[in-house]
Computed example of a mutant assay.
Amino acid sequence: MKIIDGHCDAITKLFASPELDFFQEEKELDVSYPRLQRAGVKIQAFAMYMSESIKNPTFDHLLQMVDIFYRKIAVAPHIRLIRNRNDVLQVEASNEIGALLTLEGLDALHGNLTHLRVLQYLGVRSIGLTWNYANWAADGVMEPRKGGFTLKGKMLLKELEKMDIITDVSHLSVKGFWELAENYSKPCIASHSNVFKHCAHPRNLSDDQILELIRRNGLIGLTFVPFFVDDRSPVTINQLLKHLDHVCALGGEQHVGFGSDFDGIEQWITGLEHAGLYDNIINALSKTYTESQVERFLYGNWRNFLLSNLPEGM
C-alpha cells in the first residue's frame, strides 16, 4: 500500500551530522531511503527546521539546508523532487520516491519576501508559519503572550495567496490560526498535529480548528509524537488511531492523513520507531476500516490535496 508522510526532520539531522548517509540504514535516521522503500512511502515531505541550537538563524543557514537536501537526498535518479502536480503523477506511475521540500518556521527570512520567492524557485512548496515561539510574522503556540500575526505577517499571508506555496498551521498560536482564517482564503494544512480533545497539549487542534480546516478543504496530518497522542506512556498505535477516529467523526474522513515528525522526536510510539514500520499502522487500521478507507488515510487524501494545491507547472 502506498504512503504519503507529511512531515519529517531528516534534513535537520543531516545538517547537524554531515557524516550521516540518507541512502544507508543509519540507526540515527528515522527516515532513510531503505526504510521509505521498505514501507512503501511514495512521497515524503522533508522540512527545513532550524533547531534552537542555532541562536540567530539567517537565510544563509536555510540555503545550506537546501544544499543538503539536493546533495544528500534529491541527488539520486530514483528520488524525484515534487515541484508540481505532474511530479506527483510521475512518482505514482514509477518506482521513484517523491521528496517534497518544506520549511518549518519563518524566522530565517527576517521579513524579506524576496527570500520567500527564492525558496519557491528552489523548490519549497509548503511553509509552516512558526515553530513554537514568536517570529517576525506571528506567534507560535507556546509563546506566552498568545498573540496572532504582526502587520508584516498579514502582508505575508497576502503574498502566499498569490504563490503556489501551501500554508501550514502546525505550531501556529490559536489566535494566529483564527486570524489566518479571516485573512487567507486558500486551503491549508496542519502537517503534524493531533486532536486536543484526546490529548490536551497546546500543539493539538480543537474541534473548532479541525472543522475549519475541513471546511476550507484542508488536511490534517496526524503526528507520531507520543506526548501529542496521550499524556501517559508507553503510547500505542491504537491510541494514535483514536485521534483519527475523532477527525472522521467530525466529518474529516477525506481530510486526514499522517505527518510523522520522524527525526524531530526523541520518543516514539511503540511499533512506530522509524519510517520502515508503517506496516504496523496498516495492520491496525485494517481491523477497523475498509481497504479503501485505509488507502485514503495513508495516501489518497494527501494525494488529492497535493494535486489540487500544487502548481500545474513550474
Rank of each mutant, 00 (worst) to 15 (best):
A181D: 02
D5G: 06
R232D: 09
L156R: 02
Q120C: 02
D60K: 01
G6S: 10
E312V: 15
N304I: 05
L310R: 00
Y133G: 00
L157A: 07
H192M: 12
Y278T: 11
Q90D: 15
T167M: 14
P311R: 12
G123I: 09
I82M: 08
N135G: 01
D279M: 12
F262L: 07
E19M: 07
L151N: 09
L157D: 05
E104T: 01
K146H: 14
P34L: 12
V41I: 15
I265M: 10
H255R: 11
L307A: 04
L103H: 00
E143P: 08
L113G: 02
S191T: 15
M155T: 12
D60W: 00
L151H: 10
A39S: 12
L310E: 09
H198D: 03
A39P: 01
G153Q: 01
I237K: 06
G40Y: 13
R203M: 06
E182G: 01
Y121D: 09
S185Q: 14
A74K: 09
A137L: 13
G105Y: 05
D231Q: 15
W302G: 02
L63C: 07
R296L: 14
A16G: 00
S193M: 13
T236R: 14
Y70H: 14
L272T: 05
L100G: 12
R303V: 12
F177L: 09
F305A: 04
L122I: 02
L180N: 07
M48I: 03
K55N: 03
I97Q: 04
L157W: 07
W136N: 01
D5A: 13
K2T: 02
S308E: 07
S260V: 01
N132C: 07
N304R: 12
L160C: 02
P226E: 02
E179Y: 11
A74I: 08
I269N: 12
A47N: 07
S260M: 11
I3P: 12
D207I: 09
A16M: 02
S308A: 15
D60H: 06
K197C: 11
L272G: 08
I11C: 01
K197P: 00
Q293G: 04
N309S: 04
D230G: 12
I210E: 05
L119V: 06
S206Y: 15
N135W: 00
E26D: 12
L240G: 01
A108T: 00
T270L: 09
L205A: 11
